[in-house]
């Protein structure tokens, strides 16, 4: 925990400009777009991206995940200290569990392992209609299927017609459509809601 605190305090000072730069030339010396364009190579439209994986986690050996893709392919995904993990919120590697669904983006290594840079665990993005509102849940309908959405105090945010996200959910209306970003609870038709975009 101390290292996390040290790390955060170093980064806090750096972001606010309280630390010195390595070299004066580092101020705007690099053209980031050029570096980015050189590093990425995308597949043909319509084809799968070898640097991306999707599926259910069927095994975990330390930080190596076995993932069963919904197209039948098997993926081996390596998590490292620099991998970002999203599971309802940005979180840590230990939160990635067998049975979770996942999307991962990274770099395909020569041995067939995907070295993950970002993983999104159980993330869903659904266009739904709100059929009922309770004290801690929204009853949703997605493609004719019932989905229960749990409100997480302190986390769930609402966006009303493009305005900045707020924690106030009291303007959601029964019968309206919404787009919901959330985390699926494995094996159920339930999700925890991160952001709900209310339609107008």
């Amino acid at each position: 925990m101390t290292t996390t605190m040290d790390r955060r305090s170093l980064l806090t000072r750096a972001a606010l400009g309280a630390t010195g730069l390595v070299a004066a030339g580092a101020m705007g010396s690099l053209a980031p777009e050029t570096a980015f364009a050189a590093a990425t190579q995308y597949p043909e439209p319509g084809q799968p991206d070898p640097n991306f994986a999707e599926g259910l986690i069927i095994g975990r050996n330390q930080d190596l995940l076995q993932v069963q893709g919904s197209d039948g392919r098997l993926h081996r995904i390596q998590l490292t200290g620099v991998t970002s993990v999203w599971k309802l919120r940005p979180t840590t590697l230990d939160q990635v569990r067998v049975g979770d669904g996942l999307y991962a983006r990274g770099v395909l290594m020569p041995d067939g392992t995907l070295a993950a840079e970002s993983v999104w665990v159980n993330i869903v993005n659904l266009t739904v209609s709100i059929t009922s509102i309770g004290r801690s849940t929204l009853q949703l309908e997605h493609h004719g299927q019932k989905v229960v959405g749990y409100v997480q105090p302190g986390l769930t945010a609402a966006v009303y017609n493009g305005t900045p996200a707020v924690s106030d959910l009291s303007m959601l209306k029964v019968g309206r459509h919404a787009q919901v970003i959330g985390a699926w609870r494995p094996g159920t038709n339930e999700i925890d809601i991160a952001t709900v975009y209310a339609s107008n």
Partner: peptide
């Protein structure tokens, strides 16, 4: 699709 969106933005950003 998630594969294409994650190539240009974060899936958690959504929009």
């Amino acid at each position: 699709t998630p594969a294409a969106f994650s190539a240009i933005a974060s899936l958690s950003a959504g929009l």
